[in-house]
C-alpha cells in the first residue's frame, strides 16, 4: 500500500515529559485519517513534527515517501495545514492575509477568490480580520491551508469555534476533498463523533502512544453489542455456562455474552433454565464508539 505519511518510532520529549513516544503512524493515499485522542495526548505535537515545526527527539518521518528531514521544502510545497488556533494578521483584510501567503507559495491570484468561495468568506474578503468571529477566522485558516492546492491536508481541530451549520459545511467539504481533488486528509480531534462522520481510517493516541490504528469499520467492530443476563446465583450460573462451552464474562453479578447470535443467546438462556437458575433479565448492551474510545484510553492509563 502507498503511504502518504509514515512515521517510524517517532518520539518527542520535553525534558522529563514524554509528549510523544514511539508513534508509528501510517496514512494511506486518498484516506481521511481521523487522529483522535483526549486533550494533551500528543496530537498537536505530532502534527507540529509532521510539518517540521518541531524536531523529533528520535524517529523518522516520511511524507510522500521522502524523508522530511532532507526534503522539507519540497514536501511542504505539497502540504496544506492549519495548526491549533487559527493564525492571522489582524490588521490586514482576509484577502491581504491570503495574498501574503500566496506570494510565498506562488499560486495565481485567482486562487484567493477560489478558496474564499470554498469556505464561503467571499463577502467578507475586504474586511479586516480583526473584526472576524472565531468561526470566520477558522474558515480563513482553512482557506489558507487550501491555497496551494495540496496533496496532503493537515487540519488540527478544524471545526473548533464553528457553529453547527458551519461544522456540517466544513465536514462536507473535507469529505469531498479526496474524491474531487485527490487529497489525503489528516484531521485531528478530541471528539469521536466528529471523526466518526468523516474519517475512513482512525488512529487513536493517548499519552503520546498510538493505541489503535485501523479503518473505521474495524473500530466499529468493537461496537458490537453484548447481551447481559441477570440471574440468581450468578457465580454458579456463569460456571454452568462455561461448562457448556460458551463464552461468557462475569462482572458485578451480571453475566455478559459478547457478540453472540440469537440462537446462541437462546441456547444459553434455555441451558440456564434447565439447570434451575432463575433468569431475571436479559438485556442488550449497546456500546457506542464513544464508550470504546473511553475504554481504550482508560485501559491505557491503568496499564
Amino acid at each position: 500500500m502507498e503511504y502518504i505519511v509514515r512515521t517510524e518510532n517517532l518520539s518527542k520529549h520535553f525534558g522529563q515529559e514524554k509528549a510523544v513516544s514511539g508513534l508509528e503512524m501510517k496514512i494511506p493515499k486518498g484516506e481521511i485519517y481521523g487522529f483522535l485522542g483526549p486533550n494533551g495526548a500528543g496530537k498537536t505535537t505530532t502534527i507540529r513534527m509532521l510539518l517540521g515545526l518541531m524536531k523529533p527527539t528520535s524517529g523518522r518521518i516520511e511524507i510522500f515517501q521522502n524523508d522530511l528531514k532532507k526534503e522539507r521544502l519540497n514536501i511542504l510545497k505539497r502540504v496544506g495545514s492549519l495548526v491549533e488556533s487559527p493564525s492571522y494578521y489582524p490588521h490586514l483584510t482576509a484577502k491581504e492575509n491570503l495574498e501574503a501567503m500566496r506570494k510565498i507559495v506562488g499560486m495565481p491570484k485567482q486562487r484567493i477568490n477560489e478558496v474564499l468561495e470554498i469556505v464561503r468568506l467571499t463577502a467578507a474578503g475586504d474586511k479586516k480580520v480583526k473584526g472576524f468571529s472565531l468561526g470566520m477566522k477558522q474558515r480563513l485558516g482553512i482557506a489558507a491551508s487550501l491555497l496551494n492546492n495540496p496533496e496532503l491536508l493537515i487540519l488540527d481541530e478544524p471545526t473548533n469555534g464553528l457553529d453547527p451549520s458551519g461544522i456540517i459545511e466544513i465536514r462536507n467539504l473535507i469529505k469531498s476533498l479526496p474524491s474531487e481533488c485527490g487529497m489525503t486528509v489528516l484531521i485531528s480531534s478530541h471528539l469521536l463523533s466528529e471523526i466518526d462522520q468523516m474519517a475512513t481510517t482512525v488512529g487513536i493516541v493517548t499519552k503520546g502512544k498510538m493505541i489503535f490504528q485501523d479503518s473505521i469499520e474495524a473500530m466499529r467492530m468493537f461496537a458490537q453489542q453484548s447481551v447481559l443476563l441477570k440471574v440468581s446465583e450468578s457465580d454458579k450460573a456463569w460456571r454452568a455456562l462455561l461448562g457448556r462451552g460458551m463464552k461468557a464474562g462475569l462482572d458485578n453479578g451480571i453475566i455478559s455474552l459478547p457478540q453472540q447470535s440469537d440462537e446462541n443467546v437462546a441456547e444459553a438462556v434455555r441451558g440456564l433454565v434447565e439447570d434451575g437458575f432463575s433468569v431475571y433479565r436479559v438485556e442488550e448492551e449497546k456500546r457506542s464508539l464513544e464508550d470504546i474510545f473511553l475504554q481504550m484510553t482508560r485501559e491505557e492509563q491503568a496499564g
Partner: peptide, 18 residues
C-alpha cells in the same frame, strides 16, 4: 509583533520556506 500577535510563526514556517 506581526507574527507574535496570533502566533503566526507556525503558519509561516509551515509554508515551503526555510
Amino acid at each position: 509583533s506581526i507574527e507574535n500577535e496570533t502566533n503566526a510563526w507556525k503558519q509561516l514556517m509551515a509554508l515551503p520556506v526555510s
